[in-house]
Computed example of a mutant assay.
Amino acid sequence: MTSPAFMFSDFIAGFWRIDSWNMSLQQRLGLIEHYLELGVTSMDHADIYGVYQCETLFGEALALKPQLRQQMQLISKCGIKPEFNGYDGRYVNHYDTSKINIIQSVENSLTKLKTEYLDVLLIHRPDPLMNADEIAEAFELLHAQGKVSHFGVSNFTTNQFNLLQSRLQAPLITNQVEISPLAMQSLHDGVLDQCQQHRITPMAWSCLGGGELLSSNTPQALRIRNTLHDVAQKVGTEDISQVIYAWIRMHPSCPAPIIGSGNLERITSAVNSANIHLDRQQWFSIWQAAMGHAVP
């Protein structure tokens, strides 16, 4: 498998909460422009975000300046079917990675995002009923129609990744996984090793642990936060979130952290974390605080 001919920006803009930020149309446009001015050109979406409303809110803003589309990469995901209190006749949370659902999800995303194509489409979660041949058929059709340029996965194990890749001619270009000092399984279960092996850029979601790293009082969170403050002082920042982003980006698979904020100052601070460099002992001190023990 050859390395994919696609580049994410070093950080990725996440819009899964845009429906809760109470932004006007102009503010949403300003948010997009702020990201682009900072060099954050990869925009992460999913069909289900905001009960299927977040892509619409983004698309409405993009329509004010459609020329911005050429400056960004639009990413979306499909396959999750939440119950949503009986929405669309659903009575149980489930996954649907059938060919017909993948194609319909893409059509819906294109309409809502007001674009003719997606740069990247991801299967949002591994589906126990996933038929790799059927997914491959959907991917091939969408690519042939010019509706999706590249494909990837999210939250897949190495075996699930390999299964789907075995049916595809083009390489999967990413695995979007949770990475933070509170969620380090991908460092140890082979997922990031696989990304490094194939020179695939992993996308990192929930880098701040859903805010728990900044506010939770569990013993683990307190240990980590105390260590983050210590490292922050040594590297010259008062913002421990910058240390977290630097810690994630130090992994040799070069994860691209997703910034899930609508606050312009926090976004700028996150991107400026690229100027923070940790040494190995600082990195492992955070690992140790997270695990509760030293390395063997």
Rank of each mutant, 00 (worst) to 15 (best):
D189S: 07
L38Y: 08
K114P: 00
T237W: 07
S180I: 05
K77D: 00
A246E: 05
Q282I: 10
H45L: 09
L74W: 02
W283S: 05
I276L: 14
G86H: 01
I240G: 00
Y91I: 06
N226D: 13
L228I: 02
P82C: 00
I48W: 03
V40K: 11
I18W: 03
S241P: 04
V235A: 07
S215W: 06
R280T: 12
S105M: 02
L163N: 11
M1D: 10
N226Y: 03
R125D: 04
M1P: 14
A138T: 00
N155H: 03
R266M: 04
E83P: 00
P202Q: 07
F161D: 08
I248Y: 06
G14Y: 09
D230Q: 14
D189F: 06
R167C: 12
L122P: 01
S9G: 10
Q282D: 08
N226Q: 08
H188P: 12
L192T: 13
L213R: 09
G86F: 00
V295L: 14
R69S: 13
Y95N: 07
V120H: 00
L38A: 05
G30I: 11
L129C: 10
K112M: 04
V120Q: 00
Q220S: 15
L38F: 10
S186R: 15
L122H: 03
E265K: 13
H150L: 01
N272E: 15
C54K: 11
F84Y: 15
Q26Y: 13
L172P: 09
H150F: 13
L25A: 10
M72V: 12
P126H: 14
Q197Y: 11
L278T: 01
N22M: 12
L164S: 00
L164T: 04
P181W: 09
S76H: 07
S20E: 13
